[in-house]
Design a protein around this nucleic acid. Structure first.
Length: 536
RNA sequence: GCCCUCGUAGCUCAGUGGAUAGAGCAUCGGUCUCCUAAACCGUGUGCGCAGGUUCGAUUCCUGCCGGGGGCACCA
């Protein structure tokens, strides 16, 4: 599919050759200036190649411009040297009409798809909440983020396995079972046990004579899975720590580390030389009471994941970041390359209700559950709210704002754009207006700035998808969708479609513009895992 | 004390090695005989501080200050 940039690059290449820049720059960068007065596209080659060309950047830029003006690339109406040495391209609207046709031809399934990850597999682990309770609002962030990241990777051609690790053995599970059993008897849970209200509720459900441990695990798992399903998050693989140990994976990992000379005994415990691989200290794999630490099965699990992904990604909360160096070290000790393991650390979520911040705590009763958010605002708003901002910032979700049906709620802006598109379809059908085949429509009548702005936004989606994937930042897609919605709302305001005084040609072209917008929105919403209502 | 992370407008947040740093909310004021006004238009003395790298730094590096998180033979 021809990209305008291909033509511009070819032109620049030829111009550079014509200007006698001998070792042509390996890469010619083209960017969209934030200020349209600098043209539709701009290149800084003259700045980067100035040294090699042995002349001032501005002068080189002017030579390039001279060459390009003599033989302008497709769609180009003017080339200018500007600022310290930028080469700016002014384009005819025809380049955007080509974008419209491309969007429509590719459709929601194909537009903004790329092959950068083709043939590569990646394992992404996220959420992995302990099976000792429901998912809280913090888990919800990783569910939304992890799943959308996977959708981005898939759109870039990667084969993705969504993984959830279940820590279903060890001390926390014992405490949870003890807490359940205590509540069942009508006693208080142990001091360091689980005190959340859900424990008492679940204990009341528990049949007499049930094994608190087994029953509790299943109850918690079911609760978590229900929530994930409601959030439109589907995992490909759940790995139980108990199963992992039972099938010997832990022993194998230990053996492999040992055979590589990475393990030693000290004070009756078995240690891993993580300190030699960038961790701040060596870590215990098997305690002096012969019980493995949580770390050993975790290593075994991560080791296994490489059979499913050449690239292994963990999505972790900031409270687990201290764990990354030791896992990185353990994987290095097993011979995995540093680039093949990626730990993405996200900051915590805080909730505000009635102007008061609600601290998330596992043991206290003030925990806000994902299921509560889902009940209050529904899955679409929940996911979109999580994906509104970067995981690098601590997120404060104001439940009052998010649950309000008002302009303060950023979610409605997007949904309203979507609803308007469908409203138009209904109106058109009611008036007997139908869309002609695109081939029969003259798009060159689309010259209104509002129309062109929508198309400019649509033109940027493939780059946004690529950049968001590389940055592991699904929120960039949300930001893009808001931009598209804004452009669309402005277009809607200024450009009538079905009104009687709109000519047939223009009406048809605008109908297709709306269709392209629908496609663009659909792509973004699919990546975000959100569906939008057809009417508000 | 050590490590990680963040610090951008009154508030919540985008953003980027480039040319005049953007949205939403809030404030104030405008726009429906017209496809949904949950929209649109106007209204803005901001990149924590100090060095460094660079033709160019809000962006990269170092230090400092401030917020959050983490430093177990717990998970």
């Amino acid at each position: 599919m021809p990209d305008v940039r291909d033509g511009l690059r070819d032109g620049l290449q030829a111009a550079l050759a014509g200007a006698g820049v001998v070792p042509a720059p390996a890469e010619i960068a083209l960017e969209r200036p934030r200020d349209l007065s600098h043209g539709e596209w701009s290149s800084n080659v003259a700045l980067t190649a100035a040294k090699a060309a042995r002349r001032p950047p501005r002068q080189l830029a002017e030579e390039i411009v001279a060459h390009l003006s003599a033989e302008p690339p497709p769609h180009v109406v003017a080339v200018e040297a500007a600022g310290p040495g930028f080469v700016n391209f002014r384009l005819a609207p025809s380049w955007l009409h080509a974008v419209l046709a491309e969007v429509v031809a590719a459709g929601a399934e194909g537009y903004a798809r790329n092959e950068t990850g083709a043939g590569r597999s990646v394992s992404v682990e996220f959420v992995s909440a302990n099976p000792t309770g429901p998912l809280h609002a913090g888990h919800g962030r990783w569910a939304a983020y992890g799943d959308s990241l996977c959708r981005l990777l898939e759109r870039c051609g990667y084969r993705v396995t969504r993984e959830f690790y279940v820590n279903d053995r060890g001390r926390q599970i014992d405490l949870f079972a003890d807490s359940l059993a205590a509540r069942r008897r009508g006693d208080e849970p142990p001091e360091d046990g689980y005190h959340g209200a859900y424990v008492a509720e679940w204990a009341a459900e528990m049949p007499g004579g049930a094994d608190a441990r087994q029953w509790g695990l299943e109850r918690a798992r079911r609760d978590q899975t229900d929530t994930l399903v409601a959030m439109n998050v589907a995992f490909d693989l759940y790995t139980s720590e108990t199963d992992l140990v039972a099938r010997g994976a832990m022993g194998e990992a230990l053996h492999e580390l040992d055979s590589r000379g990475m393990v030693y005994e000290h004070d009756g415990a078995v240690w891993l030389r993580t300190g030699e691989f960038g961790d701040s200290a060596d870590r215990v794999l098997v305690k002096s009471d012969s019980e493995p630490t949580y770390f050993l099965p975790d290593i075994a699990y991560h080791h296994e994941k490489f059979s499913r992904g050449e690239l292994v990604i963990d999505v972790l909360g900031a409270d687990h970041h201290g764990y990354v160096p030791r896992m990185r070290a353990a994987l290095a000790a097993l011979g995995h390359s540093a680039e093949s393991y990626e730990a993405l650390i996200g900051q915590n979520v805080t909730l505000r209700r009635g102007g008061v911040e609600v601290r998330l705590s596992k043991r206290a009763g003030n925990m806000v559950l994902v299921s509560e958010l889902l009940d209050e605002v529904g899955p679409d708003v929940t996911r979109l709210v999580y994906l509104l901002q970067s995981i690098d910032t601590t997120q404060t979700i104001d439940i009052d704002v998010v649950s309000a049906q008002s302009a303060e709620n950023p979610v409605y802006y997007l949904q309203y754009a979507h609803a308007r598109i469908h409203s138009l379809s209904r109106q058109a059908a009611a008036r007997g207006v139908r869309r002609y085949p695109l081939a029969d429509v003259d798009l060159s009548v689309l010259v209104h700035e509002r129309e062109l702005d929508v198309l400019r936004a649509l033109a940027g989606l493939p780059d946004t998808v690529l950049a968001a994937t590389r940055a592991r930042a699904p929120h960039q897609v949300t930001a893009w969708a808001r931009e598209l919605a804004a452009a669309f709302h402005r277009f809607w305001h200024d450009c009538p479609i079905l009104h009687d005084d709109v000519g047939d040609e223009l009406r048809q072209a605008r109908l297709w513009l709306v269709e392209a917008t629908r496609v663009g929105l659909a792509v973004a919403l699919t990546i975000l895992g959100v569906s939008a209502p057809e009417r508000l």
